Amino acid sequence: MDALIYTAMSGAERALRGQQVHANNLANLDTSGFRANLELATAAALPGYGYDDRHMSRMQANAVNGRQGALKPTGRELDVAISGAGMFAVQGPTGEAYTRAGGITLDADGTMTVNGMPLLGEGGALTLPIHTRVEIGQDGTVSIQVPGQAQMQVIDKLKLVKAETAELTKNEAGLLVARDGQLLNTDNTVQVRSGHLEGSNVSAVEEMVAVMSLNRTFEIQMKLFKASDSMNEAGNRLLGA
């Protein structure tokens, strides 16, 4: 009976935390380039003498869904989306990190940013001089047209990287980073599409089904908890008889 209480309590906590993961995914249904979080549950033994037969579930949400989101045409020259696998490199709050979001804006000094973070090129943060037109090539080459000139001039090339989804996790800022903490190398096979944005890869149907399943799981765990409590009361009455 005592072991059943641990099982029920652990299962209920895992269901509750799982709902938080899926709620966050649903909240980012329309966030460009967002990668859905995946919930993973593993068994964890309780430390201490006499607890060898008691195990708790440890819920982790540090895995991401690698499925590509839909590419949406925008016609804006500073909107770019990655075709297939790959990521853009940005200067995040704690160092270099990676994202699939490609809605680029220019700050006051011409620095290219994504969600307020400097976008990195192969030579560092990308800053554009005065220009009349910007063009981002399929290989990530950034070119501008200087006022008074007809030809495009290459400024730099976007730092485009690639890694297996299993090798990635999210940091505190919600950006993708390598699990081993190392920086990813430039991958020249990554291709981008100018004038497009990638939508979130969250499936509303999948997330809602997962939430309903977790609701049922939570209800079952609560019933087990009540059953364990009833059995404890019956055992106490027998001992007191």
Rank of each mutant, 00 (worst) to 15 (best):
F88M: 09
N215Q: 15
L239Q: 13
G75W: 07
K157W: 04
D107I: 09
A173L: 05
L175G: 05
Q145N: 06
A70L: 10
P118C: 02
T132V: 15
E135H: 14
R216V: 07
A241S: 15
Q20S: 06
Q138P: 00
A15F: 02
V146G: 01
N215G: 11
L158G: 02
S230T: 15
A125C: 08
G84F: 04
L183E: 15
P73H: 07
V209G: 00
L40G: 06
G92W: 01
E167R: 13
A36I: 06
T169A: 09
G181M: 10
M112N: 04
H131V: 12
H22S: 01
A89N: 04
L126W: 05
G148C: 08
A125E: 11
R58K: 07
Y49K: 11
L40P: 00
N185T: 15
V161D: 05
A101M: 11
A63W: 00
Q151T: 13
G235C: 09
G75F: 02
A210T: 09
A41Y: 03
L224K: 07
A8W: 00
N37Y: 04
R14W: 06
K157S: 12
A204F: 03
Q91L: 13
M9E: 05
Y98M: 02
Y98T: 12
V209D: 00
Y6C: 05
S213Q: 13
L26C: 02
K226S: 15
D229G: 12
G181V: 12
P93V: 04
L46K: 03
S230G: 10
E96L: 14
F225Y: 13
Q145M: 14
A234C: 10
D79T: 11
E96R: 12
V190P: 01
A3K: 11
V114W: 07
T169E: 05
N215A: 07
H131R: 14
L16Q: 08
N37G: 13
S83D: 10
D53S: 12
T111K: 07
T111L: 02
G235D: 11
E206T: 15
G18Y: 03
A227V: 15
G181R: 09
A15R: 02
N25R: 04
E122M: 11
L4I: 12
L176M: 12
T189P: 06
K223D: 06
A36S: 11
E207T: 14
L160Y: 05
A108C: 03
M231D: 05
R14I: 08
T127Q: 12
